[in-house]
């Protein structure tokens, strides 16, 4: 009984997900930021390349710089995840949802599958496009990378995974907080304010803590050779995945317990 019921919940969530404007708008902004800012950033590097500091040129990573747009697109992705659940609380339709599926964990599983799979597909395509366009722009002036190079394909794949995981983080936060603007505030604070707080810490702590920030994890995931005080790519992905799983488990337990 349980499996077809989850399937039905997935179909229901899929109808809901694709029939509100915020979904296509959110993904359009994601595409625009990832590719558009990727183009701007790579063009800027190309035009300044010859005046750049030799050390900076030596440390230059053509992969992560072409994917830098994701660090802006992460806000659009998070909002998609947050709205996917908080819009139900704002309108009150969460009660209709839970009346139709009283086994509430199924609602969470269905939303995770719909949001996670859709965002993963969109992000992988967009990140790959940003990478290819960036290398095209670098070509001839700046050193370029190819997908066959060491760690390159991994960076591109994990770049897409980073966005998908952040979408799920947004969903989990939205489910816990239940208010759209509060959830967006917490989400953006995690990505923007926490790094600033870390900078204010004594440097001994800073070196330990900084690598755990979500956006630092993202940079590790997308860089071919992360710096020594950061996580390397796969462990960074694992840490971020743990954040997401813990958030979603807490969200599910709260959803089961709280009054709708």
């Amino acid at each position: 009984m349980s499996e077809p019921a989850v399937g039905a919940a997935v179909r229901s969530e899929w109808v809901k997900f694709r029939t509100v404007r915020s979904t296509p708008i959110g993904y359009a902004v994601t595409v625009l930021l990832t590719i558009g800012l990727g183009v701007l950033i790579t063009f800027a590097i190309r035009s300044h390349w010859h005046t750049m500091d030799p050390i900076a040129r030596f440390a230059f990573d053509p992969v992560s710089t072409s994917l830098a747009g994701t660090l802006f697109a992460q806000f659009a992705i998070g909002v998609i995840g947050i709205l996917f659940i908080t819009s139900e609380y704002a309108s009150g339709s969460i009660r209709a949802t839970l009346a139709a599926i009283p086994q509430r964990w199924r609602v969470v599983v269905a939303k995770v599958l719909v949001l996670g799979v859709t965002t993963l597909i969109v992000s992988e395509v967009v990140v790959l496009a940003a990478f290819l366009i960036g290398q095209r722009i670098y070509a001839g002036v700046v050193p370029t990378a190819s997908l066959g190079g060491p760690g390159v394909a991994r960076s591109v794949v994990l770049g897409g995974a980073y966005l998908a995981l952040l979408g799920l983080l947004g969903l989990g936060l939205g489910l816990i907080i239940r208010h759209q603007s509060a959830a967006i505030s917490v989400y953006t604070s995690l990505l923007l304010i926490v790094p600033i707080i870390v900078i204010l810490l004594p440097s001994g702590w800073q070196n330990v803590v900084a690598r755990y920030e979500p956006s630092a994890l993202g940079r590790s995931m997308m860089s071919v050779s992360p710096s020594s005080n950061m996580f390397s790519a796969w462990p960074a992905a694992a840490v971020l995945a743990i954040y997401v799983v813990v958030t979603l488990v807490v969200a599910t337990v709260l959803l089961e317990r709280r009054d709708a």
């Binding site: 229901s12 969530e13 109808v15 809901k16 029939t19 509100v20 404007r21 915020s22 819009s87 139900e88 309108s91 009150g92 339709s93 009660r95 209709a96």
Partner: peptide
């Protein structure tokens, strides 16, 4: 208690 941006038919289908 219905998402205001969704059509009646899509709400029912969901």
């Amino acid at each position: 208690s219905v998402h205001p941006g969704r059509s009646a038919r899509n709400h029912l289908r969901a």
